[in-house]
């Protein structure tokens, strides 16, 4: 029986590696003459045999970082309420609301955005279709907020109780306790939350596919339409199996895989940092 458990665990581990190997295998045309790295910096112009994914990388980065920038203050504020500023019964309600938001399917966020947010953006911000980086970032900001709030609250509340009591007894207000004790003490978890949020924004497919516009050019402003790496994979899937165009989605897949690895390793280093500094 123990052997079966071991088999299952090794199998799942191998699976993770197999995903990477499979993408290398199918993206093989990319790796003759070092084309992989030139793809990362080329534009996408099938007419001239250019299948670079540079525009998608830029699109992904722009959208997810803007979403993060929009979501961070909102999430931190909500976490502050849930971790001390709001009256005690309300703290539970704030957390319940955040949990509920985490349970809303991504596709529903995208669906509502198309009919509610896109017309607003179209009328008041940009002239064109209303499908652009700004719209996608706004939706993603709401989408990643629950993840970040949960991490932030854990970080702020995870501070040793004896510190909190000491601070309270010295006459700190709730705001002061948050600012001068909980925030400085909980920052590694808060950074973890930011990284997780970025990971979710970067990895999301449906929202950017539905509201970012999917145009193939390199975006130059936040009201430009853009295509993300994830959306590119979903869009090109139907084409001819042997073409370079098809191979390019594996380049996207590899970039996303490597990004995930960087995120996971970054989070691990943060954990080490935290346990290291904690005498």
């Amino acid at each position: 029986m123990g052997v079966l458990f071991q088999l299952a665990a090794y199998g799942c581990g191998l699976l993770t590696i197999a995903v990477l190997v499979m993408m290398f295998q199918l993206g093989r045309p990319l790796f003759v003459d070092g084309q992989f790295f030139s793809l990362l910096s080329q534009v996408w112009q099938p007419g001239q045999q250019l299948y670079g994914i540079y525009p998608m990388i830029i699109g992904s980065i722009r959208i997810s970082f803007l979403a993060l920038a929009l979501s961070f203050p909102v999430s931190l504020g909500t976490a502050f309420l849930a971790a001390g500023l709001a009256p005690r019964p309300m703290q539970r309600w704030v957390l319940a609301m955040v949990r509920l938001m985490a349970g809303i399917p991504t596709v529903v966020y995208g669906f509502v955005a198309i009919f509610l947010l896109v017309p607003l953006v179209r009328e008041h911000v940009s002239r064109g279709s209303g499908l652009n980086i700004l719209t996608a970032s706004l939706v993603l900001a709401v989408l990643i907020a629950p993840t970040m709030v949960v991490f932030f609250v854990n970080g702020l509340r995870g501070v040793d109780q004896s510190y909190c009591r000491a601070t309270d007894a010295l006459g700190a207000t709730a705001v002061q306790r948050l600012l001068y004790l909980q925030l400085p003490q909980g920052w590694p978890t808060i950074v973890s939350g930011v990284i997780m949020g970025l990971g979710r924004a970067m990895g999301d497919t449906l929202v950017s596919l539905m509201v970012a516009g999917n145009s193939i050019g390199v975006p130059t402003s936040i009201v430009d339409s853009a295509r993300t790496l994830t959306a590119h994979i979903a869009l090109v899937i139907a084409a001819d199996f042997a073409s370079m165009e098809f191979a390019s989605i594996f380049a996207c897949g590899l970039v996303l895989y490597l990004f995930t690895m960087a995120v996971v390793i970054g989070l691990r280093m943060l954990v080490h940092l935290r346990t290291g500094s904690d005498r």
């Binding site: 799942c12 581990g13 699976l15 993770t16 590696i17 995903v19 990971g199 970067m202 990895g203 999301d204 497919t205 994830t230 994979i233 979903a234 897949g253 996303l256 895989y257 995930t260 690895m261 995120v263 996971v264 390793i265 989070l267 691990r268």
Partner: peptide, 13 residues
């Protein structure tokens, strides 16, 4: 570490 990566992979991947 491997499972964390698997958990973090975007669903499209």
């Amino acid at each position: 570490l491997l499972f964390d990566i698997l958990a973090g992979l975007p669903s499209v991947v």
